[in-house]
C-alpha cells in the first residue's frame, strides 16, 4: 500500500497541481494520493492565506469523482502550529505498514533541513520532489518532472484584475471561487 501526502496551500488548487498529482500516482504506483491544504505556513508568515475552509472546499471540488485522490483537512483544523510530522504520524497510525510519500515542490527543497523534526520525518516518509522544469536540484530525492507553469499567484492576480481564469482551474473550482467572491480584494491587485 503506497500513500502519497500532498501538502500545499492550494490557494487555489489549479490544473498544475492536478496534472502533477496524476503523474505522481502513475509514476510511483500510488494507491492513494491525499491533498492536505496547509495551515498558515511557518515560512510564509507575512502572506495571509485564504481561510482553510474555502481552500479545502476547492480541493474537494477539484478531485470529485477521482478514486485515487482524496482530501484531508487535518492541518487546517489543527489548533496551534501545524507540522508535517504530526500529519505523517496520523497516517502511520491509521495505515500501519503503508509506504508513505511526502510530495514537495522543488522550491521547498532548500528549506527542508529547517523543517520541524526533519530527521524523524525523513525516516517515516520518502520525500518526492515535484518539478516544474525539466531538471530540479532535488538533492537525494526522486523527482517527478513535469514542465508546467501555472501559478496560484497568477490566478489570484487575474481574478483581482477581472481577467478570465478559465482553463487554469477546473470548472467547479472556478464556479466556487466566483460564488464566494475569493481573490477580489485590493491586496491581490498587482
Amino acid at each position: 500500500m503506497k500513500i502519497g501526502l500532498y501538502g500545499g496551500t492550494f490557494d487555489p488548487i489549479h490544473h498544475g497541481h492536478l496534472i502533477l498529482a496524476r503523474q505522481t500516482v502513475e509514476q510511483l504506483g500510488l494507491d492513494r494520493l491525499v491533498f492536505i491544504p496547509a495551515a498558515q505556513s511557518p515560512f510564509k508568515t507575512g502572506q495571509a492565506l485564504t481561510p482553510g475552509q474555502h481552500r479545502f472546499e476547492m480541493v474537494k471540488l477539484a478531485i470529485e469523482g477521482e478514486t485515487h485522490f482524496a482530501a484531508d483537512d487535518v492541518e487546517i483544523e489543527r489548533t496551534g502550529p501545524s507540522y508535517s510530522i504530526d500529519t505523517v504520524d496520523i497516517y502511520r497510525q491509521a495505515f500501519p505498514g503503508a509506504d508513505l510519500f511526502w510530495l514537495i515542490g522543488e522550491d521547498h527543497v532548500p528549506s527542508l533541513p529547517k523543517w520541524h523534526r526533519i530527521d524523524e520525518l525523513k525516516n517515516r516518509v520518502r520525500f518526492v520532489v515535484l518539478s516544474r522544469a525539466d531538471w530540479a536540484d532535488a538533492g537525494p530525492y526522486p523527482v517527478i518532472p513535469r514542465r508546467i507553469d501555472i501559478s496560484a499567484t497568477e490566478i489570484r492576480n487575474r481574478v483581482a484584475n477581472d481577467l478570465p481564469i478559465t482553463y487554469l482551474v477546473p470548472e467547479r473550482v472556478l464556479r466556487y471561487l466566483q460564488a464566494v467572491k475569493l481573490y477580489r480584494g485590493e491586496e491581490h491587485r498587482s
Partner: peptide
C-alpha cells in the same frame, strides 16, 4: 482487520472515509 475507535468529536473518521470512497 484494523479496528479504529474514535472519540465522536474526532473528525479523523471522515478523512478515513473519504480516502476509501470507493
Amino acid at each position: 482487520v484494523l479496528v479504529h475507535i474514535f472519540h465522536s468529536d474526532k473528525r479523523r473518521f471522515y478523512a478515513l472515509e473519504s480516502l476509501w470512497s470507493d
